[in-house]
Amino acid sequence: MNTKAKILVVDDEERIRKLLNLYLNKEGYETQEVSDGISALDLMKIHDYDLVLLDIMLPGIDGIQIIKEIRKIKETPIIMISARGEENHRVEGFQAGADDYIVKPFSPREVMLRVGALLKRTKVNNHEPEIISYSELEIYPESRLVLAAGEPITLTPKEFELILYFVRNPERVFTREMLLKEVWRYDYFGDLRTVDTHVKRLREKLQKKSSQVAKMIVTVWGTGYKFSPIQGE
């Protein structure tokens, strides 16, 4: 149980906020709640939350716009919660920068499992120091630091998990379905463009620092992607 993780709960339904706060507090998390989009965005800009549970339909500013705005300055882990479970809405959430997506009505127990899993993946693990290096690319998993040509790159939690999974499996070809299952860590029955979007953004960020590193993420036409260090030589 993490007694220090600070979580912001954003939902215009008081019943939902109280329910989530109840379960989060039982798990030992510190919580703060807000009911509208403008207040949520203001708080997220000021405070460094460990995770945000964010409803899509909010008064003031909707959840999608909040994510787009906050991703310009921060990489706060965000789980979207919405009554809209259609494929296009889930895809829109992921493309905006969400790290996970939960559909209402939800099981509080499942939400706690998702929260715990995402926090675990985004927190520093001081017991397993590791450095992964390929030419101009260096990755420090415990501090979630990525360097390209010696320059740090700011990645979203999901982008970091994606490149880390790639570098730990060099030259292995992955289909989009495999990446969704392994990187997103649960079966996602949606548009495979989610993977393409994340790969595109990852390449763009790498390209700004090192074209050599960007070339290491290779498109395998008709199949998917692979990480190939020799492509950057």
Rank of each mutant, 00 (worst) to 15 (best):
M1D: 12
M1R: 14
K4V: 04
K6M: 14
I16D: 02
K18G: 10
K26G: 07
S39E: 14
S39C: 02
L43T: 04
K45R: 12
H47A: 09
H47R: 08
L54C: 04
I61P: 09
G63F: 13
E69P: 15
I73D: 01
K74Q: 11
E75H: 04
I78K: 03
I79C: 05
M80W: 00
R90D: 01
D100Q: 07
Y101S: 07
V103K: 11
P105R: 05
V111C: 07
R114F: 10
V115H: 06
V115R: 10
N125M: 13
E128P: 04
P129V: 07
I132V: 15
Y140C: 14
R144S: 09
L145C: 08
G150I: 07
P152I: 04
T154M: 04
T156F: 01
P157L: 07
P157N: 08
E161H: 10
L162I: 14
F166Y: 13
F166C: 11
E171F: 13
R172S: 13
R172M: 14
V173H: 09
L180S: 05
E182D: 06
V183H: 04
V183T: 02
R193A: 01
E204Q: 15
K205E: 11
K205M: 05
K209P: 00
I217C: 02
V218Y: 12
G224N: 03
P229G: 09
G232C: 12
